[in-house]
Simulated assay, not measured.
Amino acid sequence: MAIKEKARELAQEIVSSQAYQEMKDAEEAVMADDEAGDLMEELESVQKRVQMAQMNGQEIDQSQKKKLQNLKAKMQQNPKIKDFLTAQQEFNGIMEDVNEIISNTLQGQEPEEEEDSGGQIIT
């Protein structure tokens, strides 16, 4: 089917993009660094516990909020994590642009031409 082939082509373009490669490289650097990796894992664990508590109708107590704030502050001080978060944000912006173009086209709106982060015109 032509649609699936185009989707595969788009996926390959995304995987080949500089933004994706920078994000993956930054992620690998975080995981290769014990301190950074531990911080990321701890944040994920705390966030899951908080999310589960919220889903069960429990309020987040001050100690959980403080723990999250402390973890986020530590993460902002870690250069590898900062680089990863910046690269991730850049990649997410590109994915949002792609989704917006698809959504606008499905709604019959003309997609606007704009430059992607690689300097290429996308429609």
Rank of each mutant, 00 (worst) to 15 (best):
residue 34 D to P: 14
residue 46 V to F: 04
residue 51 Q to A: 13
residue 49 R to Q: 13
residue 78 N to K: 01
residue 43 L to D: 00
residue 43 L to K: 14
residue 87 A to E: 03
residue 36 A to R: 12
residue 22 E to H: 09
residue 74 K to H: 07
residue 7 A to T: 06
residue 112 E to A: 12
residue 81 I to L: 04
residue 12 Q to N: 14
residue 115 E to L: 14
residue 87 A to D: 00
residue 117 S to C: 08
residue 51 Q to I: 02
residue 63 S to G: 04
residue 56 N to D: 05
residue 8 R to F: 08
residue 118 G to F: 06
residue 45 S to Y: 10
residue 101 I to Y: 03
residue 18 Q to N: 12
residue 51 Q to V: 06
residue 17 S to K: 03
residue 94 I to D: 09
residue 52 M to H: 09
residue 52 M to P: 00
residue 98 V to L: 01
residue 114 E to W: 04
residue 3 I to D: 06
residue 99 N to H: 06
residue 80 K to Y: 05
residue 11 A to Q: 12
residue 87 A to F: 08
residue 83 D to G: 12
residue 69 Q to A: 12
residue 117 S to D: 13
residue 109 Q to W: 03
residue 42 E to F: 07
residue 3 I to A: 11
residue 113 E to K: 13
residue 10 L to G: 05
residue 91 F to M: 05
residue 74 K to T: 05
residue 53 A to E: 04
residue 87 A to G: 11
residue 7 A to P: 08
residue 95 M to Q: 09
residue 6 K to D: 04
residue 73 A to E: 03
residue 91 F to H: 06
residue 82 K to F: 00
residue 65 K to G: 11
residue 81 I to H: 08
residue 20 Y to P: 00
residue 18 Q to F: 14
residue 65 K to P: 09
residue 13 E to C: 13
residue 82 K to W: 01
residue 35 E to T: 12
residue 99 N to M: 12
residue 14 I to D: 00
residue 92 N to V: 01
residue 96 E to A: 07
residue 70 N to D: 14
residue 71 L to K: 05
residue 64 Q to P: 04
residue 76 Q to Y: 07
residue 70 N to H: 10
residue 71 L to M: 11
residue 30 V to L: 07
residue 15 V to L: 14
residue 107 Q to A: 15
residue 75 M to Q: 06
residue 53 A to V: 06
residue 73 A to T: 03
residue 16 S to G: 12
residue 63 S to R: 11
residue 73 A to P: 01
residue 41 E to H: 10
residue 14 I to H: 03
residue 96 E to W: 01
residue 92 N to L: 03
residue 9 E to C: 01
residue 22 E to N: 15
residue 17 S to T: 03
residue 97 D to F: 10
residue 94 I to G: 06
residue 37 G to T: 06
residue 47 Q to E: 02
residue 119 G to C: 05
residue 55 M to V: 04
residue 31 M to Q: 15
residue 115 E to M: 08
residue 61 D to A: 05
residue 11 A to E: 07
residue 44 E to L: 14
residue 84 F to N: 12
residue 24 K to N: 04
residue 95 M to W: 00
residue 42 E to N: 09
residue 88 Q to T: 05
residue 120 Q to H: 08
residue 64 Q to R: 11
residue 110 E to Q: 15
residue 72 K to R: 02
residue 71 L to S: 02
residue 81 I to R: 10
residue 112 E to Q: 15
residue 29 A to D: 09
residue 68 L to R: 11
residue 42 E to L: 13
residue 8 R to D: 01
residue 8 R to T: 00
residue 54 Q to C: 07
residue 63 S to M: 09
residue 28 E to K: 15
residue 118 G to W: 11
residue 78 N to H: 13
residue 78 N to S: 08
residue 30 V to Q: 06
